[in-house]
Design a protein around this nucleic acid. Structure first.
Length: 418
DNA sequence: TCTGGGGTCCTAGGACCC
DNA sequence: TCTGGGGTCCTAGGACCC
């Protein structure tokens, strides 16, 4: 049971991508840098602490970042290096305890309640983790320790950059109450504004507000969660393995009128990436969702739940094309800036493989190639790519007449299983 | 010169069933 | 002639996280 002692740790690498760049190139150390983007556009994927001081943040447009921080140095990013370095950090955490829950490439929860008899109290463990990551990998990492996951995560945010914060049992309220409500997990700009209208600015304000009022402002589920967290009633356990509930891929592009042939080319490429990842995981999904974003950032989704799960590139392409057409018909004459395909409602492929073989005709398009034939095509392509490399065969990465928004290595990093 | 890519969870209305 | 209440699935949109 969490709650006895500050035995939940949250370890979070500081400005991860930017710190790696400063590790790889000593000339960048101590300087404001942005990974990704440029002074004339693109998106900043990460900013060093020196840049954050000027208000530069990940997700921000490059031109805005350059205005905020005139000395900002833009670097392209060594996306191929990030995974291995983050994995090395996770291995250090695994040395402390097997009870590690990785929640993104660069952060994880640990339950050290079974490790204190070996390594000492949580504070000592947290310090040791930070020393080892600094010495063996060369990166700064912040650690928060508390009785619950939520509080440990807040503690690590407060500890940043490059610090350690322990919240001893019994001191939770005095720690939490003065902190801004935006530190609560799940409070973004919209929720923050809604809470502000109720006069709620700190976590203490939130904890003291009646549940009905909070629920009315932000919705039932969110309200309940927020109050539980603000009142430190979080009881979530460490989960050491997760299974993805959906698989998706998207591609941004310069605004343009959608030409059917190009739309199809992009969708074939996206469907191939999604379907191949599903097959690699031994999974397939019944619900196909597409998203079309238009100039001006308005976006529309269309989804369809099929009688049978799909993991076949061709079938996924056809379903997606149909859905995108219906979305484009609803918003005619508008320039498109992004296409996305997602598959959810996932099931194990091994089970459904048998079902599909009993019903070889693709229910989506009777009379087209049989399910067995489609899977045979995917199977050969998968084998060729496994043997000779990803790029030797497949569906061309449909450039749509513009430079790729992000390097391929960034996509690979984002696709990578944690 | 606007704003990447991969995810999770929630809401709300409608269809359908018992 | 009027018409309950609960559960589940599906679709579309939105907030949020890293």
């Amino acid at each position: 049971m969490p709650g006895r002692g500050a035995t939940i740790l949250h370890a979070d690498l500081d400005a991860f991508y930017a710190s790696v760049e400063q590790l790889l190139d000593p000339r960048l150390r101590g300087r404001p840098i942005a990974v990704g983007g440029g002074p004339r556009g693109g998106v900043v994927l990460a900013a060093s602490y020196e840049a954050k001081r000027y208000g530069v943040q990940g997700g921000m447009g490059g031109s805005r970042a350059a205005r905020l921080c005139p000395d900002l140095v833009f670097v392209r990013g060594h996306f191929g290096e990030y995974q291995a370095l983050a994995d090395a950090v996770m291995a250090i955490l695994q040395d402390v305890t097997p009870v590690v829950e990785r929640i993104s490439i660069d952060e994880a929860f640990l339950d050290v309640s079974g490790a204190t008899h070996l390594f000492g109290p949580p504070e000592v463990i947290g310090r040791r983790i930070r020393e080892r990551v600094r010495e063996e990998v060369g990166l700064p990492i912040s650690v928060g320790a508390a009785g619950t996951k939520h509080l440990a995560k807040i503690a690590s945010q407060v500890a940043k950059p490059d610090g350690l914060v322990v919240v001893p049992p019994g001191t939770e309220r005095e720690f939490l109450d003065p902190l801004p409500v935006s530190l609560v997990w799940g409070v973004g700009p919209v929720t923050q504004e809604r809470l502000a209208r109720l006069g709620i600015r700190t976590i203490g304000d939130l904890a003291r507000t009646p549940g009905d009022a909070v629920a009315h402002a932000v919705g039932h589920a969110v309200g309940h969660k927020l109050l539980a967290m603000a009142q430190d009633a979080d009881r979530r356990r460490i989960v050491t393995s997760h299974r993805a509930g959906s698989v998706s891929a998207q591609s941004a592009m310069p605004a343009r009128q959608p030409e059917p042939a190009q739309v199809r080319a992009v969708l074939a490429h996206l469907a191939d990436r999604v379907a191949r990842r599903l097959r690699d995981k031994g999974r397939a999904g019944r619900t196909v969702t597409v998203r079309v974003r238009f100039a001006g950032m308005r976006s529309v989704t269309r989804s369809r739940t099929l009688p049978q799960p799909v993991a076949t590139t061709l079938t996924l392409t056809e379903v997606a094309e149909h859905l995108v057409r219906s979305a484009l018909d609803d918003v005619p004459g508008t320039e498109v800036t992004l296409l996305a395909i997602g598959v959810s409602n996932l099931v194990d492929q091994r089970v459904i493989q048998l079902e599909l073989d009993l019903e070889p005709d693709d229910p989506w398009r009777p009379g087209s190639a049989s399910g067995a034939a489609r899977r045979a095509v995917d199977g050969s392509l998968d084998r060729i790519r496994t043997r000779f490399g990803k790029d030797v065969a497949g569906y061309l990465p449909a450039l749509l007449g513009g430079a790729r928004a992000v390097p391929d290595e960034f996509r690979e990093l984002a696709e990578h299983e944690l």
